[in-house]
């Protein structure tokens, strides 16, 4: 695999003044491929129906990995397997291994709440709670034992600045989060996830329910987050994947089950894919 740093990524590491992401955490350079999530032979079944079959894939630290492919090929299922959100679906059966930082997350001894603190998630539709803007952030913080007022206030300001929302909402933190616009709601959801100081962010089509301008703002935000967070993003917007991702994984439905067809550097997937299905999909002739 190509280990030279990606150009797009270098650009994205330059922080704009409007966004104060704070000092980047010390770690390996963005595209030194050091796996943080290792997926091995992952298969998923919903009530006996296979949704995903034998996926083996490494997600690299500090990079943006885009999952692309047609609807129903198991991208979202794959994503929710990483933070064990599929535990909420009673009929779901899983086999294979997912290791995060070397530890198998489906081990019976895993602390799922701590795992989900480490792996944040953002959904397709903005999902703020029907509470105030402030309480949307304090509620999960309190759940994880962070209650000191000055600490909480500092985190709120920090994460809202990180997502570029602070200037827009700093004088109305106690109004309902549902009164924000769609794009603001989605950025609040990202801020809420960032407040728990995760290592990894899972994003399930975070821009698809937003208008083009709000979508652009969120997209910029995501590329700013790379380097500091490991990001796995599902997107149907191929141009977007091409703009922001370092790696891309292409899923396809074979015999009614989702499978990983090809994984590699974003440039390879889009410019010189090895698999003809990938080529057809990214060129728009299939899918």
């Amino acid at each position: 695999m190509n280990a030279t740093p990606d150009n797009s990524l270098q650009n994205s590491c330059n922080c704009d003044d409007a966004y104060t992401l704070g000092p980047l955490q010390v770690g390996p350079p963005c595209c030194d491929p050091q796996p943080v999530i290792q997926v091995e032979n992952l298969s998923l079944q919903y009530g006996g129906k296979t949704a995903l079959e034998k996926v083996t894939l490494d997600i690299y630290r500090g990079c943006i990995t885009a999952l692309i492919g047609p609807s129903g090929c198991g991208k979202t299922s794959f994503l929710s397997a990483i933070n064990r959100l599929i535990d909420l679906i009673p009929t779901c059966q899983i086999s294979g291994h997912i290791r995060v930082d070397g530890e198998d997350i489906y081990d019976p001894g895993t602390n799922v709440q701590a795992l989900r603190r480490k792996i944040g998630m953002v959904f397709q539709k903005p999902t703020p709670f029907p509470l105030s803007i402030r309480r949307n952030i304090t509620l999960p913080l309190r759940e994880h034992g962070i209650t000191q007022r000055h600490k909480v206030e500092a985190i709120i300001e920090q994460v809202l600045r990180d997502v570029g929302l602070w200037d827009e909402v700093c004088d109305r933190l106690d109004t309902a989060a549902l009164s924000l616009s769609g794009g603001q709601q989605q950025r609040l959801c990202i801020a809420r996830a960032l407040a728990l100081n995760p290592e990894i962010l899972l994003m399930d089509e975070p821009c698809s329910a937003l208008d083009p301008i709000a979508s652009g703002v969120v997209e910029d935000l995501i590329s700013r987050l790379s380097g500091r967070y490991t990001i796995v993003i599902v997107t149907h917007n191929l141009a977007q994947a091409r703009r922001i991702a370092n790696y891309a994984a292409f899923f396809w439905i074979k015999e009614r089950a989702g499978q990983l067809v090809e994984f590699g550097h974003c440039r390879h997937i889009f410019e010189s894919p090895t698999h003809e299905l990938t080529a057809a999909y990214v060129n728009g002739s299939r899918g």
Binding site: N83, A114, R117, G120, F123, P140, E143, L196
Partner: peptide
């Protein structure tokens, strides 16, 4: 889902 994803 979002509450669970936040580790609540």
């Amino acid at each position: 889902l979002s509450a669970a994803a936040l580790g609540m």
